[in-house]
Design a protein around this nucleic acid. Structure first.
Lengths: 228, 228
DNA sequence: CCAGAGCAAGAGCGGTGCTCTCTTTTTGGT
DNA sequence: ACCAAAAAGAGAGCACCGCTCTTGCTCTGG
C-alpha cells in the first residue's frame, strides 16, 4: 500500500489514461460517431475485450471524455479569468467568453460532445453535472465581484417572471438580485449559441471577421447582465 | 409525360417518401446515431440493398432528413409570423422565437440533427444552405417591416466592427443599416443558444418555468435588434 | 415487340459493440 | 512461504451495421 496501492493499481490508472488518450485522439480526428472501441484497442495493441476491463461500454468511455472536456473547458475559462484579474469586469467577462470560443474552435469535436447533440443512447449522468457547471461559475463570479460596489440596476422584471427569477437566483447565487441571475442564465445560453454557431459552421458564409464580431457580441452580453 | 412520368416514377416517389417517413420515425425514436438503413428496410419489408436504389448511402438519407427538418422548422416560423401579422413587431418577433422553441421541443432529435453536432462524416452539402436560411429570413423580414417607419437607432458600432458590419449587411439585407444587420446575426445565434440549451437539457436543474423565462429572453433579444 | 433500363433479392465483405470462456498473472491473508 | 481469490489478457463468437456485387425479374419507351 506504500505509494499508491501497489503496481497493480498504478498500471490500471496508466492504462485507463492511455485508453482515454487514444480515444481523445480518435475523437479529435473523426468525431464521436466514429469513435470505435476496437480501434482504440488496436492502437494500444490490446484485444478489444481487454478494454472492457476498464470501461464497461463505449458510452461509458464517451462519458469519461465528456467529463474531461468539461474540465478542460472550465480550466480554460478559469485561466482566462485569472489572467484578466486586473482589468475591469466587462473586459474580464469578454476575456472569458473569448476563452470559451477559443477552446471550442480548438476542440470542435469535444465541443460538439458537450454542447452538441447528446450522443449516447441519451443519458446525462449526474456525474457530468458538476463538471458542466464550471464555466457558469466563472461567469457568476465575475458578476458577483463587479456587484461589490453599487450595482447598476438591471432592467426590471415583468411580473410573470418574478417567481421564476427568485427561484433561479436562490439556486444559483443567493447573493445576486433575481434580475441579475435570470439575465446571467440567458447570457450563458446565448454565449454558447454564438460559439456553437461558429464552431459548427453556421456563420460560414455570413460572418467573415468572426473574431471581431464575437468580441462585440460578448461585450453586449456583458452589458445585458449589468456589467459596465 | 402526362401526369407524372408514368406509374414507375410515381412508385419511386412513393417509396422514397416511405423510406424517409420510416427513417424519420426511427430518428424521432432513437436519434440520428442509431438510424439504421437495415432497420428502415426491415420496417418496409424490403431487403437492405433495395434501399440503396433510392438513397446512395446512409448519409444521403440523413441529408434528406436534414433538409426536411430545416423546411419543417422554417414553415413553423413562417406560420407563427403570419399568425402574428397584426401584432406589433416586437410581439411578432417573440412569437417566431416561441415557434422555433416549440418546434425544437417537439422534435428534439431533428433539432439535434440540424443545430447539434454535424452528424455524418462531416459534410454540409450546399443543398442544405438554402433550407437553413429560412428562419433567418423570417427574422430579417420582421426587422425590415418594423424599420419602415423611423428607425430607432441601434447602439453605435465600435470602429473595428464597422467594416465587418458593412459586409454582413451587404450580403444579408442591403436595406438594413449595418448595426442592425450585425445585431440581428448575433440575436439569431443567441436564439438558438437559448433553444438548444433547453432542448438538450442544459437548463434541467437551473430553470423551472422555462416557458416564461424564454419569452422574457426572446423579448430582450428583440430589444437588442432595435425592435421596440 | 423487344432491348434496355429500373428494381428486388440474396450472398458476402469488413467492420462494430459486447459476451463468454479459458488461461495467466498479481495480490493479500494465513 | 504458500495458496486461494481477484484481476487481467486472449480469443472465439453473436448479432448487428454500411455497403457492394451478382443474379434474375418487370416494366417501359422507341
Amino acid at each position: 500500500m506504500s505509494t499508491a496501492q501497489g503496481a497493480r493499481a498504478r498500471a490500471r490508472q496508466e492504462i485507463t489514461a492511455a485508453i482515454k488518450e487514444a480515444a481523445r485522439r480518435q475523437l479529435a480526428a473523426q468525431g464521436a460517431a466514429k469513435l470505435s472501441l476496437r480501434a482504440v484497442a488496436r492502437e494500444l495493441d490490446m484485444v478489444s475485450s481487454a478494454v472492457y476491463r476498464y470501461f464497461p461500454s463505449r458510452d461509458e468511455l464517451l462519458t469519461a471524455l465528456i467529463i474531461d472536456a468539461y474540465d478542460s473547458l472550465g480550466e480554460a475559462a478559469e485561466r482566462a479569468r485569472d489572467a484578466a484579474s486586473d482589468v475591469p469586469p466587462p473586459a474580464r467577462w469578454v476575456a472569458v467568453c473569448e476563452a470559451v470560443r477559443g477552446w471550442g474552435l480548438a476542440h470542435p469535436h469535444e465541443y460538439a460532445l458537450i454542447y452538441g447533440s447528446p450522443v449516447p443512447g441519451y443519458s446525462a449522468p449526474q456525474t457530468t453535472v458538476r463538471a458542466a457547471a464550471r464555466v457558469g461559475l466563472v461567469l457568476i463570479g465575475i458578476l458577483r465581484d463587479a456587484r461589490q460596489g453599487p450595482g447598476p440596476a438591471a432592467p426590471p422584471l415583468p411580473a410573470d417572471l418574478v417567481p421564476e427569477a427568485a427561484r433561479v437566483a436562490a439556486d444559483l447565487a443567493p447573493d445576486l438580485p433575481p434580475e441579475a441571475a435570470v439575465a446571467l442564465v440567458a447570457a450563458w445560453a446565448q454565449l454558447f449559441g454564438l460559439v456553437g454557431f461558429e464552431v459548427f459552421g453556421q456563420f460560414n458564409n455570413v460572418v467573415a471577421d468572426r473574431e471581431t464580431f464575437f468580441r462585440h457580441a460578448a461585450a453586449r452580453l456583458a452589458e445585458g447582465v449589468g456589467l459596465r
